[in-house]
Design a protein around this nucleic acid. Structure first.
Lengths: 198, 198
DNA sequence: TGCGTTTTATGACTTAAATCATAAAACAAG
DNA sequence: CTTGTTTTATGATTTAAGTCATAAAACGCA
């Protein structure tokens, strides 16, 4: 997260997105730096037969879509708002200028990329094992650590739908539903009127 | 890649590793920055039933293992030499000092992390589709673009064993062998005395 | 408040990749 | 050169997750 005042100093502007609107699309070249003021954004792919894969979900104060911006490569995935969202836009050239003039920003960006790479590494290893229980549980535990899941008397409320868990882990909804039930039976998580707690 | 002279100026030292030796292990805390002078290094995990997953393979002039170094987190994978290798070691504190004093290094690190994140994103989407032909071909094409595959009259020589392709894509050797044969039959790659060309 | 959509749920069936077994060719080491 | 190991190879069988069908509960919005 970069301070909003600093971004605005370099010319960033706010834009509003209704739920389910496209912010940028897979295959396009990056033109801006994006940071979420309010709302929720997912980055996703669709494969040949229309199946969705969610690369990641981003919340308030998080940025997304930087890697291709730095590499001048096409976006490998699209960005879509999951909720009504307010996004800060900063044109690439201004963003680069800001980086040059504010050395301390670089280390923040490095840490942010490192964090995301860490997540991808862990999930890649999980996804290669093919064991649904592992995959789902790793995702949930990662979510607790890095997303804004709320804790209450029942534990952490996992703020994902079964479908989202499926799209994040490469599993089908039915498999996720059955896996979550199996994990409940094993006592590692709770289902309280359809909501998942850990 | 950071200039060797600069690294040495900050106190980096060379170490030699025989083929198949461990450079650091999953679960340990990072202490150094590592850069390959000669040789080849893989980063890998083993899951509960002993199955290997290769996070990535690194060659001459490439660095590896930075994300946990920046985050102060445990390594999510181990680093093992694939060939006899010469590795440059720079202690973390010196590395951080070097970063502070050489702003231009930061942007290189950012680009490097961005590149790796890009690869992980593409492979994650591929791996979620479950179609072996897709996965194998994406890996091969990525290898051509970013690894040191040599081109000759037959095309690019894919310098991976079937087992390595399996460990990088989450497929079993037998599946990789059959998939490569299928891809050959379709004419998208060639097998010339057991070696794969594209 | 009512209606369409999304989410969760369950059972039956199919299928593609994993597993198991076995072996030949190539390579590496002594 | 011999021997042990790794790599490539192929066929038979198993199995776990995907697919398909169907539906109830919950949610959202008009």
């Amino acid at each position: 997260m970069i301070a909003i005042e600093l971004l605005e100093k370099y010319g960033a502007v706010k834009k509003f997105y209704d739920k389910a609107s496209v912010i940028f699309e897979e295959g396009n070249l990056p033109t801006h730096y994006y940071q979420i003021i309010t709302g929720e954004v997912k980055m996703n792919n669709y494969n040949d037969d229309g199946r969705e894969f969610i690369q990641g979900i981003f919340y308030k104060n998080q940025s997304f879509g930087e890697p291709p911006l730095f590499l001048n490569q096409k976006y490998p995935a699209s960005a879509v708002s999951v909720e009504d969202s307010q996004i800060l836009f900063l044109p690439k050239t201004n963003f680069m200028k800001m980086l040059e003039e504010n050395a301390s920003i670089s280390i923040k960006i490095i840490e942010n990329l490192a964090q995301r790479l860490y997540y991808k590494s862990v999930m890649a290893a999980e996804m290669s094992t093919h064991e649904p229980e592992h995959r789902v549980l790793k995702l949930i535990d990662h979510g607790i650590e890095y997303f804004n899941f709320k804790k209450d008397a029942n534990g952490y409320l996992i703020n994902f739908t079964r479908q989202q868990i499926g799209d994040l882990t490469g599993l089908r909804v039915e498999t996720v539903i059955r896996t979550i039930k199996a994990l409940e039976k094993k006592g590692v998580l709770k289902i309280i009127n359809r909501k998942v707690y850990r």
